[in-house]
Design a protein around this nucleic acid. Structure first.
Lengths: 249, 249
DNA sequence: ATCAAGCATTAACGCAGGTTGGTGCACAGC
DNA sequence: GCTGTGCACCAACCTGCGTTAATGCTTGAT
C-alpha cells in the first residue's frame, strides 16, 4: 500500500481490497507542484478535492495589509477538505511548501466513493474530523500558549502526524520550513521564532537543521507544551506504537 | 419556520416542505441547559449530534494548568458537528453561556436524514464547511490581529451570524458574554479586554452593555479589523440584505 | 569570480499586553 | 438589614515579544 491516504485511514479502520483499489483508482490526476507554489489561490472557484501524495503543503490566509497566517499543514495523506465543491469560491489559499505531488479527485468520484463504500466513508469522515480538531487545537495554541510552549506543541503534533503515515524515522522527520513560515504559523515574529528555537535547542529538546526535525526528548517536549494527543484521535492502532517509541527514548 | 437551523439553511438553499418537516421531526429530544452549564464535557463518550435552538453556547478546551480557550461560539441554528459519533470521545467541552435549549439528534436519525434528502445533506455539509472556515479565521484572528482588531473582528462575525438566523435587531444583537469569556475567546487577559472595549466605545464603534451588543459603525468596524465576510459563505441570499443594512447606517 | 537572493542569526530598543491588587456596584441569599 | 459573590473597571508596574537594522552564510545565476 503505497498511498499515504490509505496508510492514514488504516489507523482508523481496516479497509477491504476493493475499497483500497477504489481509492487508488481515484488518484489518477496527479500534478507536481514546486516549492512555494500555490495549489489553489484565495478567490478561485472550487474544483475537485486535493490529496497530497508527497511533499509538504499548507493552507493560509492573507490579510489586506499583507500579514499572512498559515492555518493548517498538509502532510502526505491529507485531503484538502472532502466537500469543498459545495462552496463557490475558496476563502483561503493552499500552497506547497516543499516540492509536492498533488492528486485531484473529481467531485463526482468523491461522491461515488462515498456512495458505494460506507466503511471508507466513515474513515474519510474521521480524517476530516481530525483536521477540524487540529484547527481547534491551533486556536488554543496561539491563544493560550507562549512562544516556547507553542513551538514545542507544533513539533509534537507534526511528529505524531508524520508517524501516522509512516514518514518518521524514529523521532525525526523531514520538515522543510523556514523560520519565517514557522512565524506565520505560530503568530510570532521570525526573530522570536529564532530565539525560541535556540532555547529549545539549548534545553536539548530538539534539533532542526537542513529541513530535518529531530525530537531529542519527546516526553519533556510534551510536558513543556501541555501536549495531549487525544485531539489527533489516533488511538485506534497507533497507541501501541507510541508506547513502544516512548519506552525506547 | 420556527427552527433556527432551517432559517440558517435557507441562506444556502430552498428546502422542500418534506425536508423541512424531516428536520423538525428530528428535533424532539429538547433539553434546557442553564447558564455556565456544560452540555458535553471533555472526555465524554460521544453521543448524538447537538443542535442549539435557543441561547448561546461555546466549545472550549482547558489546559492542564487551568488556562481555558473558547474555540467556537454556537448561535441558535448551529449544529455541534454532524459526525461526532464517528469518534469515541470528545477532545473538548461544549458549554452553555446563556440559558439555552439544546436538541439532541440520534446518530441514526442523522444518517437517515442524510440518506433520504440529498439537498438537505448538501445544506448541512455547507453549514459544517462554514464552521470550519470560522475556526480557520479564528486562527488568523489570534495569530495576526492585535487586541483592537481582534475584538472588532469577533463582533463583526457575530453580527453576521446572528443576522443569518434572524436574531439581530438592525445592528444590535443579544450577546451575554462576560469580559472574562471574551478574554478566553480572544487570547487576551480580561484586563486588556476591558481596555479594548473602552477604546472601541471611545471611537463610537460599538456599545456593549447588559448583554446587548450594538454596532454603531459597521463599516468602520470592518475596516479596522480587516473583516472580509467571504469566509462565512453567506453570499447566497444574504448579500442583498447586507447592502440594504449598510446603506441605512 | 562576482553578485544577488534567501535565510539564520544577533543586538538594541520599544511597546502591547500581562500581572497584581485593588475599588465599587448590582444582585441574591439569609 | 447584612454579607458574599460576580462582574466591570482602574492604576502601577513589568515583560514577552515585536521592530528595525545589521551581519554573515549558502546557493545559484551569470
Amino acid at each position: 500500500m503505497n498511498n499515504p491516504l490509505l496508510r492514514k485511514l488504516a489507523n482508523f479502520t481496516e479497509l477491504s481490497a476493493e475499497e483500497i483499489k477504489a481509492v487508488e483508482d481515484s488518484c489518477t490526476d496527479v500534478r507536481e507542484v514546486g516549492a512555494r507554489e500555490d495549489v489553489i489561490a484565495q478567490g478561485d472557484r472550487t474544483g475537485g478535492v486535493k490529496l497530497l501524495l508527497e511533499g509538504f503543503a499548507c493552507r493560509y490566509k492573507t490579510l489586506e495589509d499583507g500579514r499572512r497566517q498559515i492555518v493548517a499543514y498538509f502532510v502526505p495523506g491529507d485531503l484538502c477538505d472532502l466537500r469543498v465543491f459545495i462552496l463557490k469560491r475558496m476563502d483561503h489559499s493552499i500552497g506547497a511548501i516543499a516540492p509536492s505531488k498533488v492528486a485531484t479527485l473529481a467531485p463526482d468520484n468523491v461522491l461515488k466513493l462515498m456512495h458505494n463504500y460506507p466503511a471508507l466513508t466513515r474513515a474519510l469522515w474521521w480524517s476530516t474530523l481530525v483536521e477540524e480538531a487540529i484547527a481547534r487545537e491551533w486556536i488554543v495554541n496561539v491563544g493560550q500558549r507562549n512562544a516556547l510552549e507553542r513551538t514545542a506543541h507544533l513539533f509534537c503534533e507534526l511528529l505524531y502526524r508524520f508517524r501516522a503515515v509512516g514518514l518518521n524515522e524514529g523521532l525525526s522527520c523531514t520538515l522543510p520550513l523556514t523560520q519565517v513560515e514557522l512565524a506565520e504559523t505560530l503568530g510570532l515574529s521570525s526573530v522570536h521564532v529564532n530565539r525560541t528555537l535556540q532555547e529549545l535547542r539549548r534545553q536539548k529538546l530538539i534539533t532542526l537543521d537542513g529541513g530535518k526535525l529531530t525530537i531529542q526528548n519527546l516526553k519533556a517536549l510534551e510536558e513543556l507544551s501541555f501536549f495531549n494527543p487525544d485531539y489527533l484521535h489516533q488511538d485506534y492502532k497507533a497507541d501501541k506504537a507510541k508506547d513502544v517509541e516512548r519506552e525506547s527514548v
